[in-house]
Amino acid sequence: MKSRSQKTVKFLAITTAIILSIAYLLPIYVMVLTSLKTPYEITQRTYLIPSIDLHPENYAKAFSLVKNALLNSLIISSSVTAISSFVGGLSGFYLSRFKSKFSKILFVLVGISLYLPYQAILVPLVQLMARTRLALTHAGMIMSYSILNVPLASILMGTFFMSVPREIEEAAEMDGATKRQIFFRVVSPMAMPGYASTAILVFTQVWNEFLLALTLSTPQTATLQVKLAEVKGSFVALYNLQMAAAIIGIVVPVGFFLLLGRYFIRGILAGALKG
């Protein structure tokens, strides 16, 4: 009886693995393959077969198209990650350690803004950026994204601080350490994995964001996603270039995911289960 149902499970598991493999590997396979072909070869309708001679020069071409945007994205995403993680750490500590009426109100305000659709503040933000002329600089983009990512970073960091053991903290408090000393010298070093998760999540989110980048960025500050959309729009039939550019665009976040997947998953869980 038991072995029969174990067999069913095994059968189902293998079937599922095969179906999912097709669904999730085919797009990537096609993407890599197409990026190495010439436009002529693409129109030959032999999509699943690699072409006889590969064309890595597509990547050189795609790279020259997106290289400025790549740099912009790196600057903006890393700065926002640093600012949001730092501020998020401070506010997360406050929300998880100071239980007062005020901190409860702040928590509700943070909770509501956590998944705020960007549309809800887009018009004033564009107006603000245009009025202050920050729209033309990286600083403006960094500021905008930081404002939007601090709530998430705060909740994530707060969640991680809650799981840090309290004993050392209490001992430090007995010795007369201030909350600030405790935060910077005791709790933060212990919550480094939490910072890593938060940083990866914020970085990926900013790197992949499109709506705000599309409306705020100027040709000098255009992020990678904006550039990729532009490449898709202006090289409609050149699927090889589109795919090569897209692959260049996913190297950083997918690299993070493959190398630091543990932190990535922990970040997703912290964001979903407590936020």
Partner: peptide, 20 residues
């Protein structure tokens, strides 16, 4: 296998699927 798309942007997935 099923989690890697979470690291990609909708712009990238949209580009791939347009082609699919």
């Amino acid at each position: 296998l099923i989690l890697y798309p979470a690291a990609m942007s909708f712009i990238v997935t949209g580009t791939i699927w347009s082609w699919m």
